[in-house]
Amino acid sequence: AIERGSKVKILRKESYWYGDVGTVASIDKSGIIYPVIVRFNKVNYNGFSGSAGGLNTNNFAEHELEVV
């Protein structure tokens, strides 16, 4: 089962992080479509409006993740 702290591989082909491994930061139990927040070591794009980097978290559905 996917739980907080799990290392997961991203299976969503259109994702910037496809094939990468991230760490589960949290799981939303409220029934939303993409409840699993995954944190990565790298950012997906340069930040804007003065922020240092881009996003390094993204929401995924459990079926888009594979525990490694």
Rank of each mutant, 00 (worst) to 15 (best):
R12T: 04
E62Y: 15
I10C: 09
T57S: 09
G31W: 09
V8D: 00
G19Y: 04
P35S: 12
A25M: 15
S49A: 11
S15F: 03
P35C: 14
T57R: 06
S30L: 05
D28Y: 06
F40Y: 02
Y18R: 01
Y16W: 06
I33R: 13
I37P: 00
G19A: 04
F60D: 01
K13C: 11
R4P: 14
I32V: 13
V24W: 04
F48M: 13
N41F: 11
R12F: 03
T23M: 07
K29C: 13
L55T: 14
E14K: 06
G47D: 15
G53E: 14
E66M: 10
K7Q: 12
I2P: 04
P35T: 12
E3N: 10
K29I: 08
A25P: 01
V36P: 00
G22T: 03
R4L: 14
I27Y: 08
S15G: 02
E62S: 08
V24F: 03
N56Q: 09
S49I: 11
V43D: 13
V8I: 01
I2V: 07
S49E: 15
V68P: 02
N59I: 05
V68C: 10
K29D: 10
V67G: 02
T23A: 04
V43K: 10
E64M: 03
T23V: 12
E64P: 01
N44Q: 14
P35E: 09
I32F: 08
D20Y: 13
I2G: 02
L65W: 03
S15I: 03
G47S: 10
K29P: 09
F40I: 03
A25H: 09
I27V: 08
N59L: 05
G22S: 03
E14N: 12
T57A: 07
I33C: 14
L65T: 02
P35I: 14
K42Q: 07
G31H: 11
T23W: 09
V36W: 04
I10K: 01
T23I: 13
S51M: 11
N58F: 12
V43A: 07
G53M: 10
Y16P: 08
A61S: 06
E3Q: 14
V38I: 04
S26A: 13
A61F: 06
T23E: 11
K9Q: 04
I27W: 05
F40R: 00
L11C: 08
Y45E: 15
S51I: 11
V68E: 04
I32Y: 08
F60I: 02
I32W: 09
G50T: 09
E62W: 14
F40W: 01
S30T: 11
Y18D: 00
E66P: 01
A52T: 13
I10V: 12
R39I: 13
R4W: 08
G5Y: 05
K42R: 12
E64K: 02
H63N: 07
F40C: 03
D20G: 06
I33M: 12
D28E: 09
R4G: 05
R39N: 06
G22R: 04
G54I: 09
G5P: 02
R12Q: 03
I27L: 06
K42C: 15
G53L: 10
S49V: 12
V36D: 00
T23P: 01
R4S: 08
F48L: 12
S26N: 09
V67K: 06
N41Q: 13
G31V: 10
T23L: 06
G22V: 05
G47R: 03
V36F: 15
A61Y: 06
Y45A: 15
N59M: 09
V21I: 12
W17K: 00
D20S: 11
D28P: 03
G50E: 14
G50D: 13
S6A: 13
N44M: 14
Y34R: 10
S51Y: 06
E66V: 08
V43G: 08
E62P: 10
V21Y: 08
L11S: 01
A25C: 15
L11K: 04
T57W: 15
K29N: 11
V67F: 05
G19C: 13
A25K: 08
V38T: 00
V24G: 00
V36Y: 15
E62K: 08
W17N: 03
V36R: 00
N56D: 11
Y18Q: 01
G19N: 09
S30R: 08
I32R: 08
S30M: 04
I32S: 14
W17E: 00
K7H: 12
I37H: 07
E14V: 06
E62H: 10
K7C: 15
G54V: 08
I27Q: 01
Y34Q: 06
K9A: 03
Y34M: 08
R39F: 14
A52H: 09
N44A: 09
K7V: 10
K7G: 02
V21Q: 03
S15T: 02
I33K: 13
V68Y: 06
N41S: 13
H63F: 12
V67D: 03
R4A: 12
K42L: 07
G50N: 09
